[in-house]
C-alpha cells in the first residue's frame, strides 16, 4: 500500500515536469520540451571563436590554379607561334 502511494506520487511528479512521455515507447520531442530543445541547441551550435585561416580551399588560389594557367598559356604559345610564322615568314602566295 505504501509502495503504491509512492508510485502514484512519483507519476504525478513526473507529469508535472513534462517527462511523462519518457515512460512510453515514443521518442521525446525536442520541440515540445524546453529542456531537450536547449540541450540540442547547445550541441549543434558551434563555437564561433575559432580564427579564420587563409586556407587554399577557401580562396581557390593554389598550385593547381597555377598549373591550369600554365597549361592555358602553353596552348596560347603554340597558336601564337603559328600566327607569328604566318605573318613574319609567309609561304609564297604566287
Amino acid at each position: 500500500m505504501i509502495l503504491r502511494k509512492k508510485a502514484a506520487i512519483a507519476a504525478i511528479f513526473l507529469m508535472g515536469l513534462g517527462l511523462s512521455a519518457c515512460s512510453a515507447n515514443t521518442a521525446p520531442s525536442a520541440a515540445s520540451n524546453p529542456v531537450l530543445t536547449t540541450v540540442g541547441q547547445s550541441v549543434t551550435t558551434p563555437s564561433t571563436t575559432t580564427a579564420t585561416q587563409p586556407n587554399t580551399s577557401a580562396s581557390g588560389i593554389n598550385d593547381n590554379t597555377l598549373n591550369q594557367i600554365n597549361q592555358q598559356l602553353n596552348s596560347l604559345d603554340q597558336s601564337m607561334s603559328q600566327a607569328n610564322q604566318d605573318v613574319t615568314n609567309p609561304q609564297g602566295d604566287n
Binding site: L76, S79, M80, Q82, A83, Q85, D86, V87, P90, Q91, G92, D93
Partner: peptide, 15 residues
C-alpha cells in the same frame, strides 16, 4: 589567298 589571308586569319583568330 591561302597563305596571305586564310592562314594568318585562322591562327590569329585562334590566338
Amino acid at each position: 589567298r591561302v597563305y596571305l589571308v586564310m592562314a594568318p586569319k585562322t591562327h590569329l583568330t585562334i590566338s
